[in-house]
């Protein structure tokens, strides 16, 4: 009997001990460890996890101010490593942490439209314009662009390589009945894909055996296509970042660099929008404005343009903010 109460108390104490330091994870400055390429590593002294919050950290690199900016963005900007490469500069300049929530463009905009993010960085021009029109943001700014490409099995069963436009390529896939994987998740890529199908006069439905709407992110969709010999539309940044893991796929339309892409319809622009503080008074409007200004500033634009050149021999994103 005694044993049991002792045991219960022990378990409670154990778990409570774990729970005690509950507030610390938010106070501890985030270490920038997973990005090994971070050359200008800001001092990343990770305070012992259960130490009291660092109240008087003089180092400007640590966001000790408790300032946090929440960015909801698409997986491509995060998974490609771009944000890991440029955000330390923002943290240093404004002494403010950036919490990145990386989801599909549809969800990223949804998060913004509920006031759950301070700033949104996405790529679906029409949805972005609607976001502004609905008053969720006051203005949209160009940030950068890259392009979409069609990748598929190396033997190219639909002979897509001979196509001269994306529309034609899609039509060839539909006609040949070769399997196609769609993101199917209302992401920017999915939106673009559907618009290309529409331009080809095809409405993909689940009755079409060759059309597979996966409802997954770009990475999963590429991996699935690699396994299942599917064609799929991808942004070039994610493709370049993951090519090594996709031995069965190659670019069948869109060329090896953005200059070789014959179809301007596959242009993929990214826009940034600060969430409207008139609608959501709780958003960190001042810092969101700083972020937008910083993202379109010439220095940051240069960083964006340089990103990936050393690793992939070409930029993953091309800056295009209005000067």
């Amino acid at each position: 009997m005694k044993r049991f109460s002792l045991l219960l108390i022990l378990v409670l104490a154990l778990v409570a001990a774990v729970g005690c330091a509950t507030a610390t994870p938010t106070a501890v400055p985030p270490t920038n460890a997973p990005a090994p390429t971070n050359a200008p590593a800001p001092t990343n002294a990770p305070a012992p996890t259960n130490a009291p919050a660092p109240t008087n950290a003089p180092a400007p690199t640590q966001a000790a101010s408790g300032c946090t900016l929440r960015l909801s963005t698409t997986t491509s900007t995060y998974d490609s490593g771009l944000l890991d490469a440029i955000l330390p500069d923002f943290k240093q300049k404004f002494n403010c942490d950036v919490d990145v929530v990386a989801v599909g463009t549809g969800q990223a905009l949804e998060i913004g439209s509920k006031g759950d993010a301070d700033v949104v960085l996405v790529h679906a021009r029409k949805s972005e314009d609607k976001f502004v029109a609905d008053g969720f943001a006051k203005e949209r700014f160009d940030v950068m662009y890259n392009d979409f490409i069609l990748v598929g099995p190396k033997d190219d069963p639909a002979k897509v390589k001979s196509a001269t436009t994306a529309k034609e390529a899609f039509k060839m896939i539909a006609d040949s009945g070769a399997s196609f994987a769609s993101r199917g998740d209302k992401s920017g890529t999915n939106t673009k894909e559907l618009s290309v199908w529409a331009s080809a006069g095809i409405t993909p439905t689940k009755e079409m055996k060759w059309y597979n709407a996966l409802g997954q992110g770009m990475g999963e969709t590429l991996l699935t296509s690699n396994e299942g010999n599917f064609y799929t539309l991808t942004d070039r940044a994610t493709w370049l970042a993951m090519t090594a893991k996709l031995p069965n796929l190659e670019v069948v339309f869109g060329g090896n660099t953005i200059d070789q892409n014959p179809d301007k319809a596959l242009y993929n622009p990214y826009g940034v929008m600060a969430v409207n503080p008139d609608k959501f008074p709780n958003v960190n409007a001042a810092m969101a404005a700083n972020f937008v200004k910083w993202l379109v500033s010439p220095e940051t634009q240069k960083m964006i343009g340089e990103f990936g050149k050393d690793k992939f021999g070409q930029a993953l994103f091309y800056p295009n903010a209005a000067p």
Binding site: V18, G19, A21, T22, P25, V28, T31, A33, P34, N44, P46, T49
Partner: peptide, 14 residues
Amino acid sequence: GDPALYEIIWLSLQ
């Protein structure tokens, strides 16, 4: 001893 890993483990446990 990657601090990022231990942070993740610690948060999971917490």
